[in-house]
Computed example of a mutant assay.
Amino acid sequence: MKFYTADYPDGIRAEHLSEAVSDTDLDLLKEIFFQFYEDPQNQLPYDKENEWGYLWIYGGPYYTSEAVDDLFGSYLPEETLDRLISELESVCAVWSPTPDDHPDGSESFDEEPTSTDDAREFVRSAAQQVRARVEALRNHPPGIGHNHPPEETEQTEAPLTNADLDEVSAAAGALEYAAADAPADASTASRALSVLRAASAKIRGYADKFIVAAVTAAGARFGLGEGELWIALKTSIDDLVSATSKWMELLNLPF
């Protein structure tokens, strides 16, 4: 997983961030953060009836601690994270993802890997992304991004149960482990892909209903925050399925 900045045009790996950040200068981290999150007033349409006064068309809102943990939580010591959160909170209380956000700072999955090493890295990044999205859904607080949907959507159930989310997270974890430390195993990949594809199909049906309801309500009172989290999870799952399939293909393994 790499981040690209003015000082690191060729990218800096996430696990090397702690070595590049000084005790007093967090500019590198802030430069990366602003690639993925921004003040909602920059681009979001204003809606006085919606959460925090904006229509959250790109997902969110996210508290500073959530956004910082999403990007850097696995790579930086707690004291550095706390200082970064404090500095960012002096700028804005909640954040919107930027329109071209690639969650977790990972490379875009639009470009297919051409080597098995690249494919492993794509799988690891995509798996981490899926697990982060699952945790975001589990931790999504009531009332954030949810403002009493229109009557016709009040009974809409979540597309995945807690047990389903556990399976998705476990499948992503198995693929992350396989890509990081273990020999490639076609049977493990096949089982994980089956779980992920089933979850993606369930969310797709929910996403269709969500989009229709959001358009009908003009977004003013629909729970965009939670709906966007589900859609983001589906996108991340699809990225992981694609990355894993390409990895198996490069290894000439049946799956």
Rank of each mutant, 00 (worst) to 15 (best):
D117V: 13
Q43A: 11
W52T: 07
P45R: 14
V91Y: 12
D100L: 08
G60N: 05
P99Y: 08
F109H: 11
A127E: 00
P61H: 05
S125I: 06
L55Y: 01
E87T: 07
Y62V: 05
F122P: 00
S65H: 11
E111H: 11
Y58W: 06
W52L: 11
L81W: 03
D82I: 04
E121T: 15
L84A: 02
Y54C: 03
F109I: 07
S106M: 08
D100C: 04
G105V: 06
L137W: 05
L88P: 02
G59P: 03
E121N: 14
L81R: 12
F72Q: 01
S125Y: 06
R131L: 06
T64R: 00
N139A: 07
A119W: 00
R131A: 09
E51M: 06
F122N: 08
S74D: 12
Y62P: 02
Y63L: 11
D101Q: 13
E79P: 01
E79Q: 12
R124C: 11
V94R: 13
Y46A: 13
R133S: 13
S86W: 02
P99V: 08
E111T: 15
P99I: 10
D110T: 13
P113H: 14
A127L: 03
V94Q: 12
P61A: 10
E51H: 10
G60W: 04
A93K: 13
D70Y: 00
P99S: 09
S108A: 10
Y75S: 12
A126L: 09
P99M: 08
D101G: 00
V134D: 05
W52M: 10
A119I: 01
A119T: 00
L88E: 03
T116V: 15
T114H: 13
S96D: 11
H140T: 05
S108M: 05
P103K: 02
A127M: 05
L76W: 00
P61V: 07
E87G: 02
Q129N: 15
Y58G: 00
S65P: 01
K48T: 12
A127K: 04
E49V: 09
V94A: 15
D69Q: 02
F109E: 01
E89G: 06
I57R: 04
E135A: 10
E78I: 09
V130R: 09
T64A: 08
T116I: 15
Y62T: 06
F72I: 05
W52H: 11
K48L: 12
L81A: 03
V130E: 06
